[in-house]
Amino acid sequence: MEYLLHIGIVCLIYILFASSLNLELGCAGLYNFGHVGFFAIGSYTTALLTLSGYSVWFGLLAAMLVAGLSGLIFSWPVLRLTGDYFGIASLAFAEMVRLFLLNERWLTRGPMGLPGIPRVEILGYSGNTVTLLTALVITVVSLFCFKKILTSPFGRTLKLIREDEHVARAFGKDVVSFKTRTMAIGSAFGGLAGGLWAHYLGYISPNDFSLQLTVLVLLCVVLGGRGTLLGPIVGAVLVVSVGEGLRFLPLPASMTAGVAHIQSMLFGLVLILLMLRRPQGIIAESHLIQET
């Protein structure tokens, strides 16, 4: 039961994280390979605040704000790049965040990480059930926000920009401003997911936020289907359950240490096969004009 709760919480956090990436990657066509950087910023913001005595709710709010603001600041210079250049620059950003967390020991205790982050507490109750409920509420509310964004004129403009920037410009849309706002919103929700993660695990260290997580979340979005609301949800549930399911494979004892690596190999392979066979993911975005 505890284990199912654990899977549930991890799933919800991944859904939130993947959906926030989907807003950038799927809707606006911003191939952000550094989304984990904002996740890390959110985690550390709320961890540092709650460890110095502020409440968890204030911490989560601050995580969103700080991550969103970093997204805004980061995108101001980098959005002049397009396509794969933007991807590499964002990847470099995430690594910069990780190195910063690793080296500024006075603030983050470096590689030792931050232990003892308080759990979510409602009316004196805490524990995994409370965390699950909190994560559920936050994720559902966030998904509702994403749905609103996707179906709003704002979301439609984003898809136009993704398909053809020149056309968007010709229609008088300020492309950079739209992209900047998307980055800010996406990063804020990424930061929120990071905050939940920190409060669930209770311990974070800079090496949790490596390229590994980037690939995982990228897989969630690409596997499920870019640009759809449901895609990242399906992707996240699949990735988390397959990842956890691999633990139960009847492997010889000498191999158990390698399960994490087998899991990574599998995810890498799935990413390649997806690109080869079905780049649109499980749930393909419909290209019919929808009246909403």
Binding site: Y31, G83, S264, L271, I272, L274, M275, L276
Partner: peptide, 24 residues
Amino acid sequence: NSQPVTLLIASIGLSFLLRSGLQL
């Protein structure tokens, strides 16, 4: 004949596969 980003994602997957093989 795909977009550069598709190739980039495929190569990220490939790099992940090869690196995990090394670690295994």
